[in-house]
Computed example of a mutant assay.
Amino acid sequence: MPLATTRRTGLVDQVIAQLREAVRQGDWPIGQRIPTEPELAATLGVGRNTIREAVRALSHSGLLEVRQGDGTYVRATSEVSGAIRRLCGSELREVLEVRRTLEVEGARLAASRRTDAELERLRDLHDQRDAAQREARFDDFVRVDAEFHLTVVACGHNTLLTELYRGLTEAITASVAATTHEELGQAEEIEHRGIVEAIADRDPVKAGAEAAGFLDELLAGLD
């Protein structure tokens, strides 16, 4: 595995980036045990604590799995894939239920309080989302879709609501990934244009209904 010697600033972030790239390129296939802490520390020229922190971060994101007494194994090739593996069943339902609570009120507030510049940002994100869907760019679609929903909430100008939602970013992104078909170009995805237009029309009732509608559809699909 070709790993570059790290610089002496931001060591943990650099090690995370290099390990992530090694996984992405297939240097360590899914299910394979990666080198031990001492081996990685010697290869990268950093301390074992730095390696431990980087591995912990990648384990938290779902790329790696630490098995006590056995070693660390590759679990997924990307954070999105790892999120899908972690989030399923009853946990996914709980995340969608919390999203519904926050996003319905966020959409209602956005319809009343959004600025023209924020509306343009929403339209731009929606266009990016549609483009990613048409071109079957799964990772981009998940990222932009999650950003779209955060932006809707932020347009409501309720700082506490926005920060509560932002604090759930990882779980929300995982829920988007878990409810999205990887064959984007061949699958019918949930449309969000109604949310954008309701916010544009400054119609809080319709905006709330649009936000609730697609989440209710996702929840019904879990039954």
Rank of each mutant, 00 (worst) to 15 (best):
117 A>R: 12
215 L>P: 02
131 A>W: 15
187 A>Y: 10
76 A>N: 05
95 V>I: 07
186 Q>A: 11
200 A>N: 08
66 V>K: 00
98 V>C: 10
125 L>R: 10
51 I>L: 00
8 R>N: 09
195 I>H: 04
180 T>A: 07
27 D>E: 11
145 D>L: 13
170 E>V: 14
72 T>D: 00
20 R>N: 03
160 L>S: 13
43 T>M: 07
167 G>H: 05
220 A>N: 14
123 R>I: 09
123 R>W: 15
42 A>R: 11
221 G>L: 03
172 I>D: 06
203 D>T: 06
171 A>P: 09
100 R>P: 07
44 L>Q: 03
214 F>Q: 03
75 R>G: 02
180 T>E: 06
3 L>R: 03
148 F>C: 06
117 A>S: 14
98 V>G: 11
97 E>Q: 12
92 L>P: 09
3 L>W: 08
200 A>R: 12
51 I>P: 01
212 A>V: 00
75 R>L: 09
126 H>Q: 15
102 L>V: 04
210 E>V: 03
195 I>F: 05
133 Q>H: 15
143 R>S: 08
145 D>W: 11
107 A>H: 14
43 T>I: 09
124 D>P: 13
203 D>G: 00
217 E>D: 14
74 V>A: 00
125 L>C: 09
67 R>H: 08
173 T>K: 04
157 H>Q: 14
193 R>E: 13
32 Q>F: 07
45 G>L: 01
161 L>T: 00
76 A>L: 04
181 H>C: 13
160 L>W: 15
151 T>H: 11
126 H>G: 15
147 E>R: 13
213 G>V: 04
44 L>K: 05
142 V>W: 12
95 V>N: 05
182 E>I: 15
103 E>R: 05
75 R>N: 06
197 E>T: 12
115 T>E: 07
123 R>F: 10
222 L>K: 10
143 R>E: 13
216 D>Y: 05
39 E>F: 06
110 A>R: 03
114 R>C: 15
46 V>T: 06
56 R>Y: 00
41 A>H: 04
220 A>C: 14
214 F>G: 04
48 R>P: 03
118 E>L: 10
135 E>P: 12
202 R>E: 11
13 D>K: 12
59 S>N: 08
11 L>I: 12
63 L>W: 00
47 G>K: 06
144 V>Y: 08
193 R>C: 10
145 D>S: 12
6 T>P: 13
43 T>P: 02
68 Q>L: 08
91 E>C: 05
29 P>S: 00
144 V>P: 04
200 A>C: 04
44 L>N: 02
32 Q>H: 09
214 F>K: 01
34 I>Y: 02
76 A>P: 04
71 G>L: 01
